Amino acid sequence: MATLNHFEDLDIWKKAREYCKIIFELTKKGGFKNDFSLKNQINSSFWFYYGQYS
């Protein structure tokens, strides 16, 4: 069994980070581009977690 020293080593953590980055990029396109309230809410959430745990 593998030893974990940091939660960042978890595969699920790595996958969640990938999804965050994909969602962040998607907010720059299409309907999100003009829905500033929703875009800002999603991006604020992204930066909160990304900045807190990076």
Rank of each mutant, 00 (worst) to 15 (best):
D35V: 06
L10G: 02
G30L: 02
E25C: 00
E8F: 12
K39Q: 15
F46R: 09
I12Q: 04
Q41S: 13
I23W: 05
K28G: 01
D9Q: 15
S54H: 06
W13N: 09
K14I: 03
D35L: 12
L10Q: 08
F32E: 02
F24S: 09
Q52N: 14
K39P: 10
R17K: 13
F48T: 11
N34S: 15
E25K: 01
Y53P: 09
D9S: 14
G30K: 00
I12S: 01
I23R: 08
L10P: 08
I22K: 13
K29I: 07
G51E: 01
A16H: 03
K21V: 10
H6N: 14
G51P: 01
T3C: 02
Q41K: 13
T3M: 03
I22N: 13
I12W: 06
E25G: 00
E18H: 05
F7C: 09
E25L: 00
I22Y: 12
I22W: 14
Q52T: 05
K28S: 04
N5Y: 06
Q52V: 08
I42K: 11
S45D: 06
K15Y: 09
L10T: 02
M1D: 00
M1C: 01
A2Q: 05
G51V: 00
N34R: 09
K14D: 00
G51N: 01
K33L: 03
Y49K: 10
G51R: 01
F36R: 04
Y50D: 04
E25S: 00
D9R: 08
N34H: 15
K14Q: 14
E8I: 07
F24G: 05
W47Q: 04
E8Y: 13
K21S: 11
D9G: 07
F32T: 03
N5S: 09
R17N: 14
K39N: 07
W13P: 04
T27H: 00
I42H: 15
F46E: 07
L38D: 14
Q41M: 05
H6I: 06
S44V: 02
L10K: 05
C20Y: 10
Y53N: 12
G51S: 00
K33N: 03
L4R: 08
W13E: 10
I12F: 10
E25A: 02
K15F: 03
S44T: 07
I12V: 10
L4D: 05
Q41V: 05
D11G: 08
G31E: 11
W47H: 12
N40G: 10
R17F: 10
R17C: 12
K15V: 02
Y53S: 13
F48I: 12
K39A: 13
E8N: 11
D9K: 04
T27I: 00
S45Q: 08
S54D: 05
S54V: 06
S54Y: 04
G30R: 02
H6A: 09
H6Q: 15
A2W: 01
S37V: 14
E8L: 11
Q41G: 10
W13V: 15
S44G: 12
F36S: 07
I22H: 05
N40A: 10
Q41L: 11
I23K: 11
K39I: 03
Y19A: 13
F46I: 11
E8T: 13
N40L: 06
F32G: 09
I22R: 15
A16Y: 03
F46S: 02
M1H: 00
M1P: 00
D11K: 12
E8M: 12
K15P: 02
N43W: 06
E25Y: 01
N43T: 14
